[in-house]
């Protein structure tokens, strides 16, 4: 079961940092090193897929063959504001609050 790849396969730390920024994840330098190695190995493992000829194969986005699922344009009561804000880390009772975006 231990089919893991050689330790040499790493994703360059700058790539890891770039993805982390895109995903808005603060990583410690230890995490950066760890993920560089682990994601490198996993991606290396993914390379097995290259051996499959997939030319002309339609990507399978979903397992259901459904199409044209709609709802009617009928109003359903919204949640009370109190409920809406109940789980928010910071509010003024009316709005969600976030640190000044322009700042």
């Amino acid at each position: 079961m231990n089919q893991t790849s050689p330790q040499s396969a790493t994703l360059p730390p700058e790539e890891v940092a770039k993805i982390a920024r895109l995903a808005r994840l603060k990583l410690s330098s230890d995490e950066l090193t760890l993920y560089s190695r682990q994601i490198g190995q996993i991606l290396d493992f993914m390379n097995v897929l290259r051996e499959v000829d997939t030319s002309g194969i339609e990507p399978m986005v979903s397992a259901v063959p459904c199409e044209n699922i709609f709802r009617e344009d009928i109003v359903i009561e919204s949640l009370p504001r109190k409920t809406v804000l109940a789980n928010a880390p910071r509010t003024d009772g009316k709005f969600f609050l976030v640190p000044n975006i322009l700042g």
Binding site: V52, P59, M60
Partner: peptide, 11 residues
Amino acid sequence: YYVKALQIRRL
């Protein structure tokens, strides 16, 4: 990666 995986998913 992503598109390739979805193609193999169909297979």
